[in-house]
Design a protein around this nucleic acid. Structure first.
Lengths: 166, 166
DNA sequence: TAACTCTTTCATTTTTTTCTGAAAAGAAAA
DNA sequence: TTTTCTTTTCAGAAAAAAATGAAAGAGTTA
C-alpha cells in the first residue's frame, strides 16, 4: 500500500470511528489529517485537502483546539495561522478523556445525585433507587479512575495497564 | 422530587448521554424506561409510555436485545411478547463494552494492521508510521484490557479499580 | 382453512445534524 | 486612515439519521 492510499484509508476509518462515538466525521478526519502530517496546515490547505468549505473548516478546527488536540502555530513572516496536531498519543488520550469526562460524565453524576432522593414507596420506587444507586456507584468509580488516569504520566498508565492485562 | 419526576428526568438524561455517545436517543430512553421498572413491558406499553410508533419501538427494542441489554419474557396465557432489562449493572457494562469493542475497536485494529506496512520514505512516511504504531499500541492495550475486564466477575472489577482509585 | 393477534419490514416523511458561502469582523500592512 | 489579507459568524441549504404507519409476515386459535 502506498503512503497516499494508507493516509486515505486512515482518514476514512478515523472519521467512521469518530462518528460512531458521537464525534462529527469531518472533525475526526481533519484530526487524522493533522495527526499523520509532520507539517502544520493553514485553513486553506485543510479546505483543499478535505474538499470542505471555509466555514466548516473553521468550525471543526476550533473544536479541535477546544479539545486540546490541535494547536495554533504562527510562522514568522506569514499572516495566516497554521495548525498542528498534538502528536504524543498519551496526551491525545488524556485530552479526549478529560473533555468527555467534563462534558458528559460529570453532568450525569450531578443528575444522579439529585435523583438519589426521590420520594415514593413500593416496588417501583425501590427499583428506581436501586438502579440509580448502582449507576452512581459505577459512574463515580469511573470518574475517579479517569481522574487519576489523566493526572498520571504515560509510564504510570503503561505500567498499571500492563499489570492488568497480564 | 416525586418518583415520576425522577423517572422522567432520568429518561431524559439517559437519552441525552446516549446520543452524545452515538446511541440513538430513543433506544437509550427505552433502555432507561425498562431499567427502572421492575415489571416487563409489552410493545404497546413502550409505545404509549414513550409516545412513539410501533415501527420505532420495534426497531429499538430489537437493537437493545442485540446488545444483550434487554430480554424477552413470555407470560403464560399472553400472546404478546414482553421485554425486561438486564438489571445487574455489571452485566450492563459488560454488554456495552463487548458490543462496542466488537463493532468498533476490533475493526480499527484490523485496519491499523494493514496500515503498518505502507510503502514510502521521507518525513511524511515516517510521521505516518509513527502515528499508526502509537495508535496500535494504545488500541491493542485497550483491547486486551477490555477483553480481560469482560471476562472477569464483578468482584474482580470492583477490587482492581478500588486499588486504582484508592 | 379462515379469522385473529401480534411482530416485522420498509418506502416515505420528519427531524436533526452538518455544511456552505457570503457578509461581518478583526488584524496587519501601506 | 485606507487597503489588504485572514478569520469568524450565521442564516439558509443539503445531507444524514430517525420516525412513521400501512402492509406484509408469522404464529394462534376457532
Amino acid at each position: 500500500m502506498t503512503l497516499d492510499e494508507g493516509k486515505q484509508k486512515f482518514l476514512q476509518s478515523w472519521g467512521t470511528l469518530g462518528s460512531s462515538w458521537g464525534i462529527n466525521r469531518t472533525m475526526a478526519q481533519i484530526h487524522a489529517l493533522l495527526l499523520v502530517s509532520p507539517e502544520s496546515f493553514s485553513a486553506d490547505e485543510v479546505m483543499e485537502q478535505q474538499q470542505i468549505s471555509r466555514g466548516n473548516a473553521n468550525m471543526n478546527k476550533r473544536a479541535l483546539i477546544d479539545w486540546g488536540l490541535v494547536h495554533k502555530e504562527l510562522k514568522p513572516g506569514e499572516r495566516k495561522e497554521f495548525f498542528i496536531a498534538e502528536k504524543d498519543m498519551w496526551e491525545v488520550v488524556k485530552c479526549i478523556i478529560t473533555q468527555r469526562k467534563k462534558r458528559e460524565l460529570e453532568p450525569i453524576l450531578n443528575i444522579l445525585d439529585e435523583l438519589s432522593d426521590v420520594q415514593g414507596a413500593g416496588k417501583d420506587a425501590e427499583a428506581f433507587t436501586d438502579v440509580i444507586r448502582d449507576i452512581k456507584l459505577f459512574s463515580s468509580k469511573a470518574d475517579s479512575t479517569l481522574e487519576r488516569l489523566t493526572k498520571s504520566d504515560s509510564n504510570w498508565f503503561v505500567g498499571t495497564f500492563m499489570k492488568l492485562i497480564k
